[in-house]
Structure formats: C-alpha cells, structure tokens
Write a protein that binds this DNA or RNA. Sequence first.
DNA 1: GTCAAAATACGGGAATCCCCCAATAGAAAA
DNA 2: TTTTCTATTGGGGGATTCCCGTATTTTGAC
Lengths: 233, 233
Amino acid sequence: MEIVDLSTLPDSETRYTEFLRQICEKHDMDHAAYAGMNPAAGTVAGFVTYDDAWTEHYQNQGLIMVDPTIHMARRSIAPVDWSRLERSPDFQRVFRDASDFGLPNQGVTIPVRGPYGDIGLLSATRKCSKDEWRKLFTHVISDLQSMAVHIHDNVVSSDELTNVLYHPTLSTREAEILQWVAAGKSQQDIGDILSISHRTVEVHLRSSREKLSALTTPQAVGRAIAIGLITPS
Amino acid sequence: MEIVDLSTLPDSETRYTEFLRQICEKHDMDHAAYAGMNPAAGTVAGFVTYDDAWTEHYQNQGLIMVDPTIHMARRSIAPVDWSRLERSPDFQRVFRDASDFGLPNQGVTIPVRGPYGDIGLLSATRKCSKDEWRKLFTHVISDLQSMAVHIHDNVVSSDELTNVLYHPTLSTREAEILQWVAAGKSQQDIGDILSISHRTVEVHLRSSREKLSALTTPQAVGRAIAIGLITPS
DNA sequence: GTCAAAATACGGGAATCCCCCAATAGAAAA
DNA sequence: TTTTCTATTGGGGGATTCCCGTATTTTGAC
C-alpha cells in the first residue's frame, strides 16, 4: 500500500482530482472531496469527484453555509462520521438534496489543520448500509487520515497565493514588538522593556501594520497570529 | 487492529502513559511520547515512556527550547521523520545527549492541531538502522497518525483547565464587534456599521477584554482568534 | 565601491482609545 | 415575582495610539 506522492505529479488541479479518484478505488468509496481554506489569506480550494450537477446545485443553493459535515469537522479534531449528524436539522436539508442527486448517504469528513490557521477537509462517501459502512470505516479510517494530511500538505505548499501571503516577513524588532503587543503590553511598556523610546516602538508597529496590510494594530496582531509570525499569549 | 478507546479508561495520567506503551508494543517501537500545548490557555501536558533520568535531564537542560523535532513538527502539517533533521546543529546537541542516555536514534514526530490553536505532538522512536527504520516507518505511519489524533482529541476533551478557558463565551454583540475590530475598523466605524453609539461599542469591547482576561484590545483579538471565537480577516 | 532601500531611533501634536462614573429597558434565570 | 444578566446610551478626562517629520546605521544590489 504505497502512498502516491502528489509532489511528483504535474502541477494542476487535475492531479488532485485524480488523487481523490485513486482514494475511492483503493478504499471502495463512491466519491471523495477535498476543501481547503486559509482564513488569513482568504483563499479557498476545492476538488471533488462528484458530478457537476451536484456541485452546481450545492453552490447555487449555498449549501456550504448549512452543511453539517463542514460545521462539525471545522470544530473537531477527530474524523466526523456522518451518521453522527443524522439528528441535525440541517442534515435533512442537505442530505435530502444529495439523495435526489443519487449521492451516497454514508460518509466521513476528516479535518486537517496547518500551523497558519489553514484547514483542510477530506470527505469520502459510499452508498451502503450502516453495518457495511461501519466495517469499511474502521478498516480504512487511518489510511484516510494519512491521505487527508498528505493532500492538505501538498495543497498548502503548492498554493502560490498562500505562499506569498505566508511570507510578509517582519524584521526581528517588528516581530518582537508585535509579540509584546499581543501579550497586552502598551507601547510605553514595550519601550521600557526594550530600553528604547515608545516613539520608536510605534514606528515599528506602523511598519508591521503596513507589511501585514492591516489598518489597525489589533488587525495586525490577528493576522500575525493567524499566519504564525507571532504566538498568542 | 482495534483502536483502544481512551475515553473508556479511568481518568488519570497513567492511562495516557499506558496508551503510549501499547503503541510501542503494537508497532515495535522502543519509546513513545506525547506533548500537548494550548498557547491561548498556556497549558502544557506531557506523557512519556522514557526513563525519569532522561526526562529530568531534558527539563533541567532546557532541551525543549532547542529540540529540533519540536521546532519542525510545530511548523509542519505532515509527520516529521527525525532523519531529515540530522543537518540541524541543534540536532547534534539534543541527540548526542539522548544517545548518552541510551535512547534510540530513529524516530518520528507527528503534529495534530485542534480548532482552538491547540497542538499535540506524538513521537515514536526505535533504535535500529536507517533501512530498518524506513521500512517500519512506511508500515506504521498511518496508524500512528490515527493514534496521534486519538490521544490529542482525548487530552483536549478531558483537560478541565483547557475546557474552562475554551468557553469564555462572548455574547453575539461582543463577538460581532470584536470581529469588526479584527477587520481593522475603529470604534466609531463599528458604531456606524451597527447603528449604535461608539460608546456602546467601547462597552462591549471592554467586557470582551474582561471575559478573555486580556489587558488590551489587541491581546483580546489575538486570543479570540487563537481560541476560534472570531476569524482573522 | 557606491547608492538605494530598509531597519532602527526619536519627537510634536492630533485623534483615538480606555477607564471612571451613571442610567434605562428587556430577557433570562432564580 | 424578584433578581441577574445583557444590550444600550451618555459624559469627562487621562492615557495611549497614530500620523507627520527627521536622522543614523545596516543591508543589499549593481
């Protein structure tokens, strides 16, 4: 059981879709889907093996806003088995629609998070009975988790837009000062700590804001944390 | 190959250590270690199968600050094979010490992140040749990833301190206003947007700071983002 | 080697935020 | 029903931040 190394494949959207198809074949799944988001960069990437009809319907109806699989997985550490969502009212909405399009009723969504606030969701589905699903699930879940990490790692690494926004490098002093701001210190405090004028502290903060394209210091702190330039405290 | 359900075991530190031992047995590893951190809450949890001698040395020497496995894994999405770190100067420092204590030289560290900025690192080590390690690695990595998710999920769920700090619930208005602050708006702007007085905006911000135990608004924004109450923008 | 750009440092003055206070109305909990 | 919590608005004044300008040092590119 070898893991396909995504980074060796030609760089394009199709390779990810192809990768999803391979997952389906390997694990007896009907469909697979990946969605990656980077809140800080505001980027979203998605690859699916679904028919275009369902994809369009899903987008047109804005089902992403109510899809309980996404809601749950975004807040979970462990994989989310869709059968645990059946009581959700939104579940009815989305899955009745999906059923109309002939889509499977059993599935799982696996969340994967990166260090910069980015999150990827890998879903795999299959039309079968609950018992069948349970067996299949326990059998393939750990490999699916591995695949989820693999695809998210590759998407994030190859996403040029993300990479650009990943590296608004702050100077040593700027990062240092922003870190103190995130720790709740005032400019005067920081000046005392670093033995420089609070005026100077403000200058570094200003250039930090500019580099992060932030209008205010709170926004700059939020972005810096989201992209890993500083840590919350 | 059944996954031990940690949540059914008695609640104590020993069950995690025992779980690590089971992982070692199952996958032919010499040692395993887990470290969980919650930057926002400032909590750290650790469980190891190492001897006390090494654990003490590690802490006394402050090796956690230079340990390249931790540095890398904290910034990685995928598992980090220690053999990829051999060129790091810090690697020499830590691994020479480890070798003196008779510890293995091959290993892997797997990062797992939760939705609230929390991160868990599961490491597994074995004394063997590079070739042996490579075989073992590819064979067990996906199950180890599964285990890493399992243990981190359980630690986070059962960590009462974390749970308390996980739920400084902001009211709708507070979260709404803090979100606008994170988006770079001034108090006056937000008042105009929400059609309320900028005084009111300031009151909500103050109570947000109190609930988050933050000294300043930038700190509050940082924490709110770190624990998932708002999203960066 | 020179020159431009960035990093670092400091100050004045205006704008903003933050803290103290008080007060009303509605909703939820006791 | 009473009490508590939330949401709302307001004033005054000190503290802080932010925008303007200037200057020295360091870095990097040609």
